[in-house]
Computed example of a mutant assay.
Amino acid sequence: MSLGDDGYGEDDRHHVTRTRLPEGEVDPYAPAARRGRPSGRNLMTVVGVVVLLIAAIAFANRGGGDSTSDSSDDASGHGGKGVSTGPTAPSGTKPVEGKTGGIASGFAHSEQGAQSAAANFAVALGGDGMFRAESRHAIVDATHTADTAPALQKKLDEAYSADFLKNVGLAPDGSAPKGQTFVSRTVPVGSKAIDYGTDNATIEVWCTGLVGLAGQGSTKPVSQTWFTMTEKLQWVDNDWKIVSSTQKQGPAPVSGDDRAAGADEIANAVSGYGGFTYAR
Rank of each mutant, 00 (worst) to 15 (best):
G190R: 13
P251T: 05
T202Q: 13
G262K: 03
A122L: 00
W240R: 06
T208A: 03
I54H: 14
K248I: 08
G77T: 02
A133S: 10
T208P: 00
A151S: 14
G174D: 05
S105A: 15
V168I: 15
F182C: 09
G215D: 06
L152A: 00
D141Y: 05
P22F: 10
G82A: 00
T186W: 06
A162P: 03
R62V: 13
A263Y: 06
S175Y: 08
H78I: 11
S76K: 01
D73T: 02
P221M: 08
T85G: 14
S84T: 06
P188Q: 04
K81A: 07
S39M: 04
G82T: 01
V123D: 02
V50H: 13
F164C: 09
A33M: 07
D27C: 12
V49W: 10
A58S: 12
V189L: 15
T198M: 12
A193V: 05
V123K: 04
G40W: 14
I139A: 04
A269D: 09
A261N: 05
V236S: 10
L170A: 02
G24S: 09
M1G: 08
V254C: 00
T277K: 08
E265S: 11
T100I: 13
E23G: 00
D141G: 04
T228F: 02
S72D: 11
T88F: 12
S218A: 12
S255C: 02
I139H: 02
A267K: 06
L170K: 00
S255V: 05
N120Q: 07
R20Y: 11
V49Q: 15
A89M: 04
D257L: 08
N200Y: 12
I194L: 15
R35V: 00
